[in-house]
Design a protein around this nucleic acid. Structure first.
Lengths: 203, 203, 203, 203
DNA sequence: AATGAATGAGAGTTCATTCAT
DNA sequence: TATGAATGAACTCTCATTCAT
């Protein structure tokens, strides 16, 4: 399932072409992140990428297409950041919290993340849903395991998974985007309490 | 603190004017809800309302203004629905869950709700933040009470409040918008467990 | 040749109607004078007159019509001011200069005069030409008399008349509109020299 | 002091771009000249130029900007035509009259001239005043010389300059625009008499 | 005689996309 | 592979005019 990178019409790309394409994607992340989908324009993206306007259409069929690509790209990188961070933990709870910390770190370093993901709800509903489905899978699986191992009562793992994901995302929105660009320590520890409460109910 | 309804320039409205204005707001809810802010257009809104294009500008200064008004309007109605529903409960936990049920019911009957509220993040960031601030107040107060009564340790009530709100909202997105238009019973009861876990931690 | 004042459709006007009509004309002078024809609007005129929007169309068929009326009205008053002023002079030259002084005084007291007359060139070319034709008549006649009495050589009185009118008008533009709202004494006396030079050439 | 011609945003223009821009300016002269500023529209201008609507905004930021440019452009060309014509004369008076003849010739070949210059009073007051200031400079200088050489008494050269300019302009309006498109010979010679009378008063 | 809500044609302007070079 | 000039549909908004009351 290796995606071969191509231009429009399935054209194979030369090394130079691959680079140009990447510059466009990077520029698009900056521009969409700062301005949102609708205020962003192809001119602004190509200017930010340092290429001509027409060049854009050698690599993407439309403004919509590059946005879509960006959403999928960010999703991939978010999940990678979360997994890489979680792996450092030892207990399951520790791993969960580390996963969130990885997510926060990623969000802190990608100021446009929220604009892009949340706006995809309107621009690319499929990509948007796909993003949440992918991220929630991780939690759903963890919860299902816990249930199977009788660590939890007969609950719906999917609901809990979506709930936790929502908490993490909204905390990022509230404290990174609307706050100081960083999730404060006390918020992280409170989040830890919430995760624990949701995943490890009292007997 | 009764807002007198006026047209542009503070013009007082005749009964007929009040009606026309309301038709525009209702049409705007439908159109913004279906198409989102950017794909909606004044023409589409006025057509949906059955009035001429120019009529729009007798009541609103701009597309942005009616959107803003709609966000505030929906916020008011959501909070009313939640409060009305919560009042029927007896214990605090019961009330909280009933509040969410009121919210779900409202969302089920207002298909455009999510599009509008979430898109306000890009179109009217102030109105968006104001919406969440207003809704979260309720939970923040509940949490603060619990802390004051020493039912909880020294936590940040604001964090927990935002967390709960996020859970409710995302469940609505997942099961109402992406699901069958209704939050299933088992999801509601799982939500009850989560609320309890967050608000009434084990000693 | 008494113009009976009527509303649209030749409706005879009650005393109250006459008054309302006059308020509209006065308001129109102020609004057209300040904003010019295109930036003026019926709403602004009716607001300035203190009547409802629809009332306008009881007295005038269109925005164009009231503007036309205004141009004719101003023309009548300008000529009256010039004649009244000129009559105080004894020699013909003195009378001519006094005529201009009357004109300047009128212009000083009617700040919108230039805007209205000059803009009529685009809005009501006929009224515009009519204005200049009416005003130049006076000079043409004076010159023709001089020629007939052999005080001047075989010149074209019309040319000289238009020339003098142009001088007077442009001096008003330069020193009243672009200057301090008043034609300074030295400019008036220089104008006197010019008139004399044009009308009483050396033998 | 060569103005480099650019598009919006200071974009340098290719030869083709220069040509397109010129077609727009020429079309604008025709359209503004025929219809005036307000009845002219971007669509009409681009249609007259044979380009698409959007093309306009590659070269001009707004309708106002191209109008302004046109006023300055015409002013430059008028002054050039006057100077070129005047240079052929030998005596100063001959030169002055030739300057006017150059002006008339230009006006005869540019039917829209009056509409554009005079309308600039409302659309671009600065450009309008600038136009008259530039043109009057020439006369003011001539008069000042005459005064310095004691050929004239202690008069205000500026007043006389504006007076002469007004005469020339208004004669063009009366005989070119409202007449047969040409200033007749007898009018020119009468103008000669007037110039002489104003500039060379009897001792 | 008077009102002001309603209308809709038409304005200036933007921008994703195409295409000749 | 790269360019940027050209396009035109679609947008928001204005305002002279109409008409029901």
């Amino acid at each position: 399932m290796t995606d071969v990178i191509t231009g429009v019409g399935g054209r194979a790309l030369s090394p130079k072409g691959v680079e140009t394409r990447q510059r466009l994607v990077d520029a698009a992340e900056r521009v969409f992140g700062e301005l949102g989908y609708y205020d962003a324009s192809i001119v602004k993206i190509t200017e930010a990428a340092g290429v001509g306007q027409g060049t854009f259409y050698l690599y993407f069929q439309s403004k919509h297409e590059i946005f879509d690509e960006l959403v999928h790209d960010l999703n991939r990188r978010i999940r990678h950041a979360m997994t890489a961070s979680a792996e450092k933990g030892e207990t399951r709870l520790e791993q969960e919290l580390l996963g969130f910390k990885g997510y926060f770190e990623f969000a802190e370093n990608h100021p446009g993340l929220y604009r892009i993901i949340r706006q995809s709800a309107f621009v690319s509903p499929d990509a948007f849903k796909w993003h949440y489905d992918r991220v929630s899978e991780r939690y759903t699986a963890a919860l299902r395991d816990a249930v199977d191992r009788h660590e939890l009562g007969p609950i719906d793992p999917e609901v809990a998974a979506w709930a936790l994901m929502a908490v993490g995302e909204t905390i990022g929105l509230r404290w990174i985007v609307w706050g100081d660009g960083k999730v404060p320590e006390n918020v992280v520890s409170e989040l830890g309490r919430i995760i624990r409460a949701v995943l490890e109910p009292a007997e």
